[in-house]
Structures are given as structure tokens and as C-alpha cells.
Amino acid sequence: MGPLPNGEHLLVIVDYFSWYQEIKITRQITSADIIKMLTEIFSRLGNPATITADNGKQFCSAEFKQFCTARNIVLFHTIPYWPQQNGEVERQNRDILKRLKISQAEKGHWREGLEEFLVMCCTLPSTPHSVTGKSPAELFFKRQFRDKIPMIADINRQLENPDFRDRDQQKKQLGKEYTDKKRRAKECEIQPGDKVYLKNINKDNKLSLNYDPTPHTVEKNTGGDIEVRNDQTGQVLRRNIVHLKKVEGQWRILDNNKDEEISLEDKPSTSTGE
């Protein structure tokens, strides 16, 4: 569809069954450019069984026919000067053109208006198609897309395919155990309140220290996801446990009076006879 006032064209592709559509913006409409755009789409969605196109020279060229043959796609062409034969696409073109005119009248950016049109007409379950009663994306991908409005489907989706989810969880757990064993991973011994040093990720030179000598206090530990606070500046940082080194000489004792643990930075002195 085009050309638009800025010289660009829209390549509109509609799935006959679901009414799901893809739109590509291009300045060149040669067969090579069309093939490049279709290749990107088919790499995500797979090859269609058939393509029905108009009689534009880019669709009638030997290059485009060879592209369809190589992908086992049957190519049909509409009757010349009879666009009604490809009515689904023509209807979409009319709606798209209307949306572009609205964006121009409202002094908005037509690309953003086009994106809003696709979201509203193709993906949102709250705006089903008038013919099918479902959103095009739901019919095409066989799943319901999430809307910004909380839906009961969010709960139902968690209950779908329990066997698959259990198997997926089991495989992930086995993979984690194998990786932990290979890396000789140990249980996290760093607890909130501990003093740690942070690893220097970006060293200035070869003589730079492996760890920043500034002590940090551990604020939170969530499965190796550590939140620390710089003791000098108060800045809060987030690091993985592998980037931390516990300050040597820390001892944790139990204060019987307060019934809580106290962290000591220096090892308590001992002497003979005590």
C-alpha cells in the first residue's frame, strides 16, 4: 500500500484463517526487498501453504516465483483490476489507511498510530474480531495474549499442561545440579550484616587489585542475589555472590543478653590460661 506522503510503502500480509496481520514499512518494493521482508517473517512464523498476491510486478517476477517454489509455497494471483478477490487484505488496507489519516489529523506520528492499530486489532483479547469472536493473535498462535487488564485466563494458563510444566521443572533442576557440581558450587555463607569486598569488574591496569578494599555491608541476600551498602558513601549496589569476598576475621557470636548475633570485624584476642 502506498506510496505514503514520505515516499514509503506498507507491505500488508494477512492470514486468511485468523485475520492476523503483519505490516512492514519499506521504501523499496522490488522483488528482492519483498523477499527479504517475507524471509524475516517466515523465519518467525514458518512458511505458509499458499500466498495470494495482486499482480504487482514484484509478485509476478521469476525471482519471486522461485522464492515460493523453493519454500514449497503455492502462489496465486488475483484477477487483474479485481481487488475484491483479495478482499481480506483490501479491507485491512482500508482500516490502516483510516488510522493513518486520523494520526495525521491529530498531528501525531503515523508509525506510532500504526503500532497502536496493530495492538488493538490483532493482539488484545479485549477487542475480539467481529467475525471470529476471538483476537487474531489468539487464533493464529493458539494462545491468548495478556492484556493490561487482569484476566481469569492468567490463572487458567498456570493450570494448563501440568505434565509439561513438571517435566520442564525437573529438567531445569537436573541441569542446575549438574552445573553446580561441575563448578563446585557451595551453599551461600554470606548473611545480612556481613562485611564483604566487591570484585573489581573493570580493572584500570594489570596492577589493579582484584577486590575493592572499601568494605560493604550485606543488606539482603536472595539466593545469591546480594544487595550491599558501601560503608563510606552509603551507596546501595546489587551483585552476584561470585563477585563478593567475605572480610577475613569476621566472627559471629551470640549475645546472651540481647539474644541476637553480633558481627565482629576483628578476631577476638586469646591468651593462655583463658
Rank of each mutant, 00 (worst) to 15 (best):
W19R: 15
T39Y: 04
Y20I: 00
A32H: 12
I25P: 02
P5G: 06
I25V: 12
E40K: 10
E22V: 10
E40P: 11
I41M: 14
F17K: 05
S43I: 01
D33N: 14
K24H: 14
Y20N: 02
P3F: 08
I25S: 08
F17I: 02
I41Q: 12
D15V: 05
I29M: 14
G7T: 04
T39I: 05
T26R: 03
L45W: 13
L10Q: 08
K24V: 02
D33I: 08
G46T: 06
M37D: 05
P3V: 05
G46Q: 10
T30W: 07
D15Y: 10
K24R: 14
W19D: 05
L38V: 10
L4K: 12
Q28K: 10
F17V: 09
V14N: 09
Y20F: 08
T39H: 07
Q21L: 09
I29R: 11
K36A: 12
S18R: 09
E40G: 07
S31K: 05
E40L: 14
I13P: 04
R27Q: 10
Y16I: 05
L38D: 04
G46S: 08
Q28F: 09
S18N: 07
V12A: 00
P5S: 00
I25Q: 00
L4R: 13
V12N: 07
V12H: 02
M37H: 15
T39C: 01
I35D: 07
R44L: 09
E22A: 00
T26C: 06
A32Y: 07
W19N: 15
L11F: 10
S31N: 03
I23N: 05
S18L: 08
G46C: 08
T39D: 15
L45P: 04
K24Y: 01
E22P: 03
K24I: 02
I29Q: 15
Q21S: 13
Y16Q: 11
R44Q: 15
K24A: 02
S31P: 07
D15K: 06
I13Q: 06
E8F: 05
I25Y: 02
L11C: 01
L4H: 09
Q28G: 04
L45N: 09
F42V: 03
S43D: 14
V12T: 15
K24T: 00
S18H: 12
R27M: 10
I25H: 06
E22M: 03
M37L: 14
R27L: 06
G46E: 13
Y16R: 14
I34Q: 01
L11M: 15
R27F: 11
L45G: 06
D15F: 08
L4F: 11
I29W: 06
M37A: 04
S31Y: 04
G46A: 11
L38R: 03
A32Q: 12
K36N: 09
K36L: 01
N6H: 07
E40T: 10
V14P: 07
Q21G: 11
K36I: 00
G7K: 10
G7C: 03
P3I: 09
R44F: 07
R27I: 06
A32K: 13
